[in-house]
Amino acid sequence: MTETFVTAPNPVLRVAPAAPAEAAAHFRASLARQADVSDVAAALAGAADPGFVLLDSRSTAAWDQGHIPGAVHLPTALIPEQAAGLLDRDVPVVTYCWGPGCNGATRAALALAELGYRVKEMLGGFEYWVREGFEFETWQGRERRTPDPLTAPAQQGDCGC
């Protein structure tokens, strides 16, 4: 008796890639809802008015541990009652929380969108802001850490992406 072995398909292509138009629509929609740490940092550094408000949706204890300079502090649970007093509906909001293992920025973005705000989520959150070597504030003052070479180019400020 001869055994027949069927080779498993390539795990990457087990599900075929989307058609180009479908893929383009998906990625365009992703970029309409997300920004990355480097782009947010460049926008904040490049102009007195970046055209958006950066919102930290974490607790007060987390905010005190460190936050992005210029960010507005509004914990997610307080968004329904306090957003109107802190945010202008005509100005887009970019939310962030701890990092990629936390969906707090997503929950905050949802709460704001449901209230009628235009909103994006900053991918990587506070963790990647710090890991990429950008300045942050604590109750003791401003700090900056050496960039993590696994998250940011070691010798240049732009990864080229």
Rank of each mutant, 00 (worst) to 15 (best):
Arg131Asn: 07
Glu135Lys: 09
Gln140Phe: 12
Ala77Cys: 02
Pro50Gly: 04
Ala109Tyr: 08
Phe126Gly: 01
Pro153Gln: 09
Ala32Thr: 04
Pro100Thr: 04
Arg144Glu: 02
His73Tyr: 01
Asp39Ala: 14
Ile79Pro: 02
Phe136Thr: 07
Gln156Phe: 08
Asn103Gln: 13
Ala152Asp: 05
Ala32Cys: 06
Glu135Ile: 10
Gln65Ala: 15
Pro153Ser: 09
Ala8Glu: 14
Gly51Arg: 08
Ala45Cys: 05
Val53Arg: 11
Arg14Ser: 14
Asp90Trp: 00
Ile79Asn: 05
Gly133Cys: 09
Pro69Ser: 07
Tyr96Thr: 07
Cys161Pro: 03
Asp36Ala: 13
Thr95Asp: 06
Gln65Met: 13
Trp139Cys: 09
Gly157Ser: 14
Gly66Pro: 03
Ala23Pro: 02
Ala21Lys: 11
Pro11Lys: 11
Trp63Gln: 11
Ala18Gly: 06
Leu86Trp: 00
Val53Gln: 07
Ala24Met: 11
Gln82His: 06
Ser30Thr: 13
Asn103Asp: 13
Arg33Asn: 13
Ala105Ser: 15
Glu81Cys: 01
Leu150His: 11
Pro20His: 08
Ala62Tyr: 10
Tyr117Lys: 04
Arg89Glu: 12
Leu112Gly: 02
Val15Leu: 14
Gly46His: 01
Glu143Pro: 00
Tyr128Trp: 11
Asn10Leu: 07
Asp49Trp: 02
Gly99Gln: 05
Pro9Arg: 13
Val91Gln: 07
Phe136Pro: 00
Ala108Phe: 06
Tyr96Asp: 05
Ala105Asp: 11
His67Gly: 03
Gly104His: 05
His67Gln: 06
Gly70Ala: 00
Ala29Asn: 13
Trp63Leu: 08
Arg89Leu: 12
Val12Ser: 06
Tyr128Ser: 08
Pro149Thr: 07
Gly124Thr: 03
Glu132His: 11
Pro17Asn: 09
Arg28Val: 13
Tyr117Phe: 14
Ala77Asn: 06
Asp39Tyr: 10
Gly70Gln: 02
Glu22Val: 15
Ala83Val: 02
Glu81Thr: 09
Lys120Asp: 00
Gly85Thr: 05
Pro147Tyr: 08
Leu44Cys: 02
Val40Thr: 05
Leu54Lys: 05
Arg14Met: 12
Arg145Trp: 05
Asp64Phe: 09
Asp158Ser: 14
Thr60Gln: 15
Ala19Asn: 10
Leu44Ala: 02
Gly133His: 09
Thr4Asn: 13
His67Lys: 07
Ala45His: 08
Arg142Trp: 01
Val6Ser: 15
Ala21Asn: 10
Val119Leu: 09
Thr60Ser: 14
Glu3Asp: 13
Pro20Glu: 09
Thr151Ile: 00
Gly116Asp: 03
Ala77Val: 10
Val6Pro: 03
Asp88Leu: 03
Trp129Leu: 01
Leu13Thr: 11
Arg145Leu: 11
